[in-house]
Amino acid sequence: MGVVIGGLGTSHVPMIGRAIAANKQAEVPFAPFFASFGRVHAWLDEARPDVVIVFYNDHGLNFFLDNMPTFAIGVAHDYRNADEGWGPPEPRTFRGDAELAWHIVGSLMADEFDVATCQEMIFDHAGITALDLLFPADGAGHGDIPVATIPIMINGVLPPLPTPARCYKLGQAIGRAIRSFPGHRRVLLVGSGGLSHELGVSGKIYLDFDRLTLEKIEHDPQALTQFTNDEIVDLAGAQGLELMTWLAMRGAAAGGDIVTSIYHAPISHTGGAMMLIDTREGER
């Protein structure tokens, strides 16, 4: 059977990826953010995930407005990165888990979540940065990602967007899907996004809302599902809507205990945050 071993939420602003690429994690003003991942790495060694399911929002790379799904799940054997406008990157391939992904799709459809399926999908920095934070290189650049990845895109680009409540319920349904998988998988859920920010408008960080978010994600995630999308735009900026990824993560990785978390603002123009929750039972 599949086991949900934990959930992790993290920011993914491009400056984080650039610091990793330049091997300047200890030198940047937000060095404490990177330092906080030490606990995460120790936990990963002990908890041994086979698969990381990444909830993220595409940043105008794989999906365009000609056909914009609300939820899209990668069901491919592998995923590639691509030029996002900064210049052609070093080509990378991320191993998928088509067997588990298709099982999740079947379970979701039976659960009345009509998701789009992607047999090809270019993986955006939002997902890749999260993986690089989890599995860093010994030296410069990015490390090898030792786990399979299932990308799940939540539309954060153009409204109408799924509500916070719907994203949380999607996470819950994915949790059920993982637990009903007949094979053996240890699964970590990742929500990559936020916290508060608004691109194109500098300095729009909302400390109070970010603090509330972290408190509620830990103790009462359903409270955050009471917000409408428009309320989140007012409280956390247009890109604060990326909170959806954390809510989906927490829906799937319910209960458990906080291993570590950090809030560091600003990272670039974002309220930077990370939180790791251990949901293993009986093996700690």
């Binding site: 365009f64 052609p88 735009v233 247009a238 809507l241």
Partner: peptide, 25 residues
């Protein structure tokens, strides 16, 4: 930005389409 406006959703498609292509060198 970030809020749903049906009239606004009809605007800017060509502009966004052009920007989307700028992913490639």
């Amino acid at each position: 930005p970030g809020k749903f406006h049906p009239q606004a959703a009809l605007k800017g498609y060509a502009l966004n389409r052009m920007c989307f292509t700028l992913n490639s060198a």
